[in-house]
Design a protein around this nucleic acid. Structure first.
Lengths: 239, 239
DNA sequence: GCGCTGGATGGCACTGAGTGACAGGATACT
DNA sequence: AGTATCCTGTCACTCAGTGCCATCCAGCGC
């Protein structure tokens, strides 16, 4: 997956930039896909549109589909950095680490929305996007697997990672469907919060209290038919 | 994805059966992959091993990789049936609906474990497996989306589906790594339970009480430094 | 200036996946 | 019988992806 040539030696920062070869390729390709359709556009066509040879094209993108996803190669690196740098409650850290991705997509809105249209109409592109998103999932999964998530930690690491990525995917979908109607980053934060609270350190009968967020206090009650006293009694007998 | 020819008109039931063309192909292919490696085995080779022409092979499996995954086409149907038939708390229903898949894999253990070895060593096969698993996820996601999961129902449907499928994936991985050490179906049930409890109707500030599991009572307290009275007070002020 | 070296590119040729079109051949139905 | 239908094989074609080699263009030391 990784060997997309990012071609950002130190200069042009964001994937929305223009005028390096990578950008010429992805923009030219998108335009071709929009007009001619994905599977009637050959690698040769794309290469020509950027003024390079077919052979060179495949040196930049080992798989033809990837010409639309070069940004992910960049975002993945940023997400990885965030994971390495941040500290705190693991699940929230993992969730927040996805911010650069969301920000990047929003900043590159024009390209991203047009790309989404093309992707929606083509199976190969949809599949390829799934595989790219899975890269993030593995990243988060790997990170969470190194943390202690209580009982069944290794398993839950993957489950939580999957949940987080599904949340991300939904956030992006919503944003694409109705741009501007909701702040994607805020929505993601909200969902991450809920996931962290429900599957986090205390949500799944894992370990004791007092780890990362000692000041945080939360109470969840299921079946409010019990009186407060009864609940208090239950709590006293619990731990 | 779907157009794999299942070739089970009404006769041979389980994917582990032999002697229909489909089985000859997948077994022959597996053997070739084991000995010669996946990417040095051409579609022609596989076709020959089953005594058919290359063209016919591609009529059975539009994508070469799929020759190893024909069982999923069957399992997907069964899972879908289970979803349609069962009633109860949605998340548990969705989780339990995966049982036919687990059972099928276990029943077909020889093939499945050998396949796993081949898959592990090849990117194209790994990717293809991911895409197949995603089919289940979409199935569950679609089902859950029709249910009412409380606030943000549409979003949580996808998140829960992803979590369930990650659980399934972990269960299978464990079983493959140490067959017989743990009952995969029991482990899956356990994980589904935890997911249902944490992300279910009450886990995520959704709707009121009294739906599917009215008798169930649970209390979760984060930060036990508070006294029981303080907590009771918090609760009284909550709803 | 010159020569050298390393990386990026292009051209060429080759394998193999996947597909459309057509032609038998078997089977089932009447 | 005749005929419609489904399955299969053959042929031919496009195009993705790759290895090999020649070339070109920096940069750098001298």
């Amino acid at each position: 997956m990784t060997p997309i040539r990012v071609t950002t030696p130190g200069g042009s920062a964001s994937p929305g930039d223009s005028e390096d070869l990578n950008s010429r390729l992805r923009i030219g390709a998108l335009h071709l896909f929009e007009t001619r359709g994905f599977d009637t556009t050959t690698a040769e066509d794309i290469a020509q549109s950027a003024g390079i040879s077919r052979r060179t094209f495949f040196r930049y993108f080992p798989v033809r589909e990837d010409v639309l996803f070069s940004d992910h190669a960049v975002y993945l690196l940023r997400v990885e950095q965030r994971l390495r740098a941040a500290r705190g409650e693991p699940i929230r850290v993992a969730g927040v680490a996805l911010d650069p991705l969301v920000d990047g997509l929003v900043a590159d809105a024009d390209f991203v929305t047009r790309r989404a249209v093309v992707i929606r109409e083509n199976v190969a592109l949809r599949d390829r996007e799934v595989l790219w998103l899975r890269e993030y999932q593995q990243l988060l999964g790997g990170f969470l697997a190194e943390q202690d998530l209580g009982a069944r930690s290794a398993i839950f690491a993957q489950i939580v990672a999957a949940a987080l990525l599904a949340a991300l995917s939904q956030v992006i979908d919503r944003w694409l469907a109705a741009p501007g109607s909701e702040d994607p980053r805020a929505l993601l934060a909200e969902l991450v919060d809920e996931i962290a609270e429900s599957m986090g350190e205390s949500g799944l009968r894992g370990r004791g209290p007092g780890a990362a967020h000692p000041e945080r206090t939360g109470v969840v009650v299921i079946n409010s038919r019990l009186s407060a006293d009864e609940i208090a009694h239950l709590i006293e007998g619990a731990h």
